[in-house]
Amino acid sequence: MNILVITEQRDGKVKKASYEAIRAAKNVAGELNADVTAVLFGADEAAAKAMGGYGAAKTVHVADEKLNLYSNGAYVKSVVQIAEKEGADIVMLPATALGKDLAPRLAVRMDGALAPDVTELSVDDGDIVALRPVYAGKALIKVKVTSLKKVFSLRPNVFSAGEADGAEAQVEAFSPQLDDADFVTKSTGTSIASGKLDVAEATAIVSGGRGLQAPENWNLIEDLASALGAATGASRAVVDAGWRPHAEQVGQTGKTVSPNLYVACGISGAIQHLAGMSSSKVIVAINKDKDAPIFQVADYGIVGDVFEVVPALTDELKSFLGN
């Protein structure tokens, strides 16, 4: 048996969530008596080999220029061909923007079903049990996919990729059979703000809320974020006010994040905000209202004015971290 893991690269660089998915697959593969085969679209052979360091015995490398940019039709068809060739009934992939788009089509084409946005995998009686948050993380469900073919998308930043152990995957080049019709839907380009970390991928996040009072004050948030090497996030109140782009919104109708460190500045902690960030490993809250609900979920709180506390924290961190 074989578990296929679809990895992801952008501009030739493999995303961390891909390594997390390989490692997560490897961790259940033992009990299932399965091998892990990675699939890589684009990038180079060195990147394909490096998948071995996280547990892939083999990488199927699809080096077709037409596939460097994502097309759901072409990717689905390619993965199905690879899964057949590799005898893989199980496919895992990161629940990134790409993974979320690809996974459902893939599940149907394989005549299987999808367990999306999984945060824990285990094996019970020879079968995979997946844990996934529902109702914006207010509840968790354990599920089994009962069809023979199974697809699991894994929430980024939850599974640990660990350190690469130096092993190399055997690399096999593969050219999928594709028609023009497979490319009806395709990406024609991306615009990525350079040097900007995305909240969904960051290991630390500094978020600001209405307590910041005006968009001009966002330098406080940005300075603290840069001292921590963190991404910047926002509450919906400030996104709706047009102070910050929607891509930064954390919460039930924004992004769900689980960084190692989440710093909430001038955010009250409404239930919809908590839904998106309460699974963060360590939460720090800075708010002038000692009764703000954010303190209910915070590991560490400072009661005070963001205009005084945030710059002081930035300075303290800079001197502590020596930069």
Binding site: G112, A113, L114, A115, V129, P133, V134, G137, K138, A139, L140, I141, K142, V143, K144, V145, T146, S147, S278, S279, I283, K290, F295, Q296, V297, A298, D299, Y300, G301, I302, V303, G304, D305, E308, V309, P311, A312, L313
Partner: peptide, 25 residues
């Protein structure tokens, strides 16, 4: 095709500590 085995509530995060007040903290 997807069978729910059980639903649970996530572990409640207990309120942590207030480190202090203002920039001195």
């Amino acid at each position: 095709r997807v069978e729910v085995l059980e639903m649970s509530k996530p572990p409640v995060k207990s309120a942590g500590k207030i480190v202090g007040e203002g920039p001195d903290a």
